[in-house]
Design a protein around this nucleic acid. Structure first.
Length: 950
DNA sequence: TATAGGCATACGATTGACCTCGT
DNA sequence: GCGAGGTCAATCGTATGCCT
């Protein structure tokens, strides 16, 4: 059985994709999970062979604190705990890579670097490389003698005087190094403490990191960086780029890109000193193509005795009945387990001709064969494989007595399943990432289950079923199972391998391996990117506490919204009513531009230089912050470079009809990847968990933003143009002339240094008195709806449908008088709906009147207030349904004790719809539009309803 | 085990004015 | 005259979804 993140029956038809409509530019969505934080388990006793626990401990046990030191030690431990709360722990992952001698060649032609890991057994960094000609995977073990380390500001002699460090089994030696401390803009002498293995530095109790604590203050820097990343940064290795092995050494393959193109690119984006280094370093990242890496998608089906119950991978109680495999070279296979008296069934019409079915009498044999196949691929794709498919296979194999060490290609980490040879990519995690869903894929799917994602991206969904999975005849089961893996594969293939290329580009920019980049979110990507930037520039990576000490983490501005930490954007009060010929101007990527232009970075806001502190032309509006005039901010410069690269080079090329298809497609992928980083750069600066979190920088960005929109509004008004509305980076102008528009654009470029662009002109815009709520109608008749209840996902379909019909009527209106005609048609729509609600027409189905609201946390987490959707969820749970966080609950409102009834429980049950509640819903959906066009809901109501009141 | 803040809506929970009742 | 207990509207607080 396939486990999907959301309940599938709740899948809603994808909203009409209206390209004009998406203006979620520049900002973001919500959440991501960190992959493998794991702090509470004791170190495993055996070294190097522990597969289920990524925190295997080094061979000799760490020394125990001596009795005399116990008191101090416990104080340190206490402190360590406190620190652990503040700073997100990054658990070290010790991989058990299965390497044969033949896999580690002394020479290898140009190959793509897929990952860098720490090999526990060899105690070295290990790289996985994909050689595109042979389509095979090769390994390379570090031969440079690189060791794990951290820094401390204690002098080397002082470090070596600390008994517990000197006698630590992992301790090797110290070195004194000079690093640039950006926060104080000075060279700093630091002691590098080297160890024989990563866990001696940090991540195990009694590690060196914890011994560099004096008087409750930590003196360790860069001690929580995972070794595989540390190695990557130090060697300036770019995962996703081409490397070759020459006489045992790993060396970068020079790029094949045309020098003329690079030169043109350089000229286009290099507008200031210092950028040439960035151009040289990043050119291979942006201009090296990505091959069609050999890969297979895997999906399994498990026998399930109870309906609606997903088999638990941890216990793996039930037999695996099918394993589907689809690779990108046209091999399509399904392994099927023979069961007693089970029907074979018939091949349906759309049964793929080349799908090979292999029957097994014994489950053990089937799983072994699946393992054998999986182990031959460089990349294995799944959908929810971390939590289900691979996890289930692992535990099932264990249960069946398969020798896991020798015959199972899977190793389990916390919340993930990895492979001993290849790379496992769980597309569920990657596609759920809001940065990917919203920015890279323009919100093509709303829910994260395979069916919804496939429909949104490929236009095809899962197969319909004639029965429970467990009851399907063999052929139908095989078809279904293989189809899921085939869809999973095709998600990485559509649009010339868009998703695969995107993953590789994100690897290159973030410097993370494929396994990490597909599991982590934007804040980890950006963190990794800037760690590399620090290392490359020989700068010390600051700790959160360092930034907080150097500049306050208290905001100087007060948020408008309760519980928010600093002031954000401005929304201009809308002029309620209908406005013909409204033109919208907006700033092109406002916040990134501000960061670039005003040199905003954690080290350059409130910098340590007196001359900057006392200058007058560098003050941040509304605050007492200032920006640095002496040094270019690292984040400011990098984000500025990415932004310019995207806007000035790749964005235009992705739509340029004069270019060949290949260049256009590639440009579009690079443009999408850059968009993700550029748009999130402000957000992470203001995120308190981010390594480089900096309150002064975050509130400076929004302060400049408010300044920009307010001064633009003032400027427009001084030109005699009425400003109808505006939100963050846009102004709606009342019928401005072409000259006026042009004048404003020029003014903005000159005075603000920000590109103001003419975005669109509406035939008319209907503004309500509410902010973030309006309808805009284009001259072509297209309608854009923002914020109104009628388009919200939780609004029942019957109301959404009626709302849509109303929009159809409104889109035809051409003048003020037109609304009178529209009124008659809208009255008709309203009365038809009310008739059906009141039983005078065809009654609505439960699905049509269902409210769909998400359970955002575990049911037990809800406190005193029990909203309707939670009550409905509790009813479902009582009926035996699985209701994990993230489930969208469909419920109807009824007259009765509970007031709600889940749609799933409505079948065969008698209930009374709470008709009044539904008329209220319709009322509020329509009113939001009607009040702005000068109509009232009440006057639309026909006699049918009024009669009943009087 | 989270990239930001600003805004609208629905509805549950709490508060407090007001009333009735019983002694 | 007073306190207990009930009703109901106003107000506060929580939850969700959306905008940029």
């Amino acid at each position: 059985m396939k486990y999907s993140g959301e309940r599938e029956h709740l899948a809603k038809e994808k909203k009409a994709a209206n390209k004009d409509q998406s203006s979620i530019e520049d900002f973001f969505g919500s959440k991501h999970r960190d992959e493998d934080a794991q702090n509470d388990e004791p170190p495993a006793p055996v070294y190097g062979v522990v597969e289920a626990n990524p925190r295997a401990s080094p061979p000799p046990a760490p020394p125990k604190p001596e009795p005399a030191q116990e008191e101090q030690a416990s104080a340190e431990e206490e402190y360590a705990e406190e620190v652990a709360e503040e700073v997100a722990e990054e658990a070290e992952v010790i991989t058990e890579v299965r390497v044969a001698d033949s896999d580690t060649p002394q020479d290898l032609p140009s190959s793509f670097l897929l990952s860098v890991d720490y090999a526990g057994q060899q105690r070295k960094a290990i790289a996985r490389l994909y050689e595109p000609k042979s389509k095979n995977l090769y390994f390379w073990l570090d031969n440079t003698g690189h060791y794990p380390y951290c820094y401390t500001d204690l002098p080397a002699q002082a470090v070596e005087k600390i008994d517990r460090i000197r006698r630590h089994s992992g301790f090797m030696r110290t070195e004194t190094v000079q690093l640039l401390d950006l926060l104080h803009d000075q060279q700093k002498s630091m002691t590098k403490v080297l160890a024989g293995d990563p866990l001696s530095i940090g991540g195990s109790s009694g590690s060196i990191r914890e011994m560099l604590v004096q008087d409750g203050v930590s003196h360790a820097w860069e001690a929580n960086i995972r070794y595989r990343n540390c190695y990557t940064y130090d060697r300036d290795i770019v995962p996703g780029l081409m490397y070759k092995i020459e006489r045992g050494n790993l060396v970068l393959s020079s790029s094949k890109t045309d020098d003329k193109i690079i030169e043109e690119f350089r000229k286009t984006v290099q507008d200031e000193e210092g950028v040439e280094k960035l151009v040289s370093r990043y050119a291979p990242v942006f201009f090296t193509d990505v091959p069609d890496i050999r890969r297979v998608a895997v999906d399994i089906e498990v026998f399930a005795p109870v309906k609606n119950r997903v088999p638990d991978p941890a216990t793996a109680n039930y037999e695996v009945i099918a394993v589907g495999l689809a690779d990108n070279e046209g091999h399509d296979k399904c392994l099927v387990l023979k069961r007693k008296n089970h029907p074979e069934g018939k091949k349906g019409n759309d049964f793929p001709a080349n799908l090979e079915i292999v029957y097994f009498d014994k489950e053990v044999d089937m799983i072994q064969e699946a393992f054998r196949l999986i182990d031959t691929y460089p990349i294995v794709l799944t959908f929810v494989g971390d939590a289900f498919d691979l996890n289930y296979l692992y535990h099932r194999a264990e249960r069946l007595g398969i020798d896991l060490k020798r015959n199972c290609p899977i190793t389990l980490g916390k919340d993930m399943a990895l492979l001993k040879r290849g790379i496992h990519v769980d597309l569920y995690k990657f596609l759920k990432n809001p940065s990917i869903r919203i920015y890279a894929l323009s919100g093509a799917y709303e829910q994260n289950n395979l069916d919804a994602v496939a429909k949104g991206l490929l236009g095809v969904g899962k197969l319909g079923l004639s029965n429970d999975i467990s009851g399907l005849p063999y052929l139908e089961l095989a078809h279904y199972c293989w189809n899921d893996s085939s869809i999973t594969l095709r998600i990485t293939q559509f649009d010339s391998n868009l998703l695969l290329r995107l993953i590789v580009l994100l690897m290159r920019i973030s410097r993370l391996s494929m396994e990490d980049v597909t599991r982590q979110g934007i804040s980890s990507w950006i963190q990794s990117l800037f760690r590399q930037e620090h290392r490359t520039r020989k700068c010390l990576i600051p700790r959160q506490v360092d930034i907080e000490t150097a500049k306050s983490s208290e905001a100087q501005t007060e948020a408008v919204i309760k519980d928010k930490r600093f002031k954000g954007a401005i929304v201009i009060e809308p002029v309620a009513g209908v406005h013909f010929n409204a033109t919208v101007l907006d700033f092109a990527s406002l916040y990134p531009t501000i960061m670039k232009r005003h040199n905003i970075s954690y080290e350059t806001v409130d910098c340590p230089h007196d001359e900057c502190r006392n200058a007058t032309d560098n003050r941040v509006p509304e605050t007492s912050h200032w920006t640095c005039k002496k040094r270019r901010g690292m984040i400011s410069q990098t984000v500025g470079f990415f932004r310019d690269t995207r806007v000035k080079w790749f964005k235009g090329r992705s739509k340029d009809a004069s270019l060949d298809d290949k260049t256009r497609k590639w440009s579009s992928v690079v443009e999408k990847a850059l968009k993700v980083f550029v748009n999130a750069s402000y957000g992470v600066t203001g995120a308190s968990h981010f390594e480089l979190f900096c309150m002064p920088a975050a509130e400076s960005v929004t302060a400049y933003g408010r300044n920009a929109i307010l001064s633009t509004k003032a400027r427009a008004e001084s030109m005699g143009i009425r400003v109808l509305y505006g939100d963050t980076d846009s102004v709606f102008l009342d019928n401005p002339s072409r000259e006026q528009q042009e004048q404003l654009v020029q003014w903005s470029r000159k005075e603000l240094g920000i590109d103001l662009e003419v975005d669109k002109t509406y035939k008319y815009v209907a503004l309500s008195a509410r902010k973030k709520n309006y309808i805009g109608v284009y001259k072509t008749g297209g309608v854009e709806v923002k914020g109104l209840s009628g388009k919200k996902r939780n609004t029942p379909d019957f109301a959404q449908a009626a709302f849509k019909r109303m929009l159809g009527v409104l889109s035809k209106v051409d003048s003020v008088d037109g609304f009178e005609t529209a009124k008659v048609e809208i009255r008709d729509i309203v009365n038809q709906v009310i008739d059906r609600l009141e039983g005078r027409g065809e009654p609505y189905t439960p699905e049509e009147v269902a409210f769909r609201v998400q359970i955002t946390k575990d049911l037990g987490q809800y406190g005193k207030t029990k909203p309707q959707h939670v009550r409905a969820a509790l009813m479902l749970k009582a009926a035996g349904y699985d209701v994990p966080a993230g489930t969208i609950i469909s419920y109807i409102k009824t007259k009765g004790d509970e007031g709600v009834l889940p749609v799933d429980l409505a079948q065969g049950k008698s209930y009374w719809l709470d008709k009044d509640k539904y008329i209220d819903t319709l009322h509020s959906v329509f009113e939001q539009v009607l009040d702005s066009v000068g109509l009232e809901f009440e006057e639309l109501l026909g006699f049918t309803t009024l009669e009943q009141f009087f």
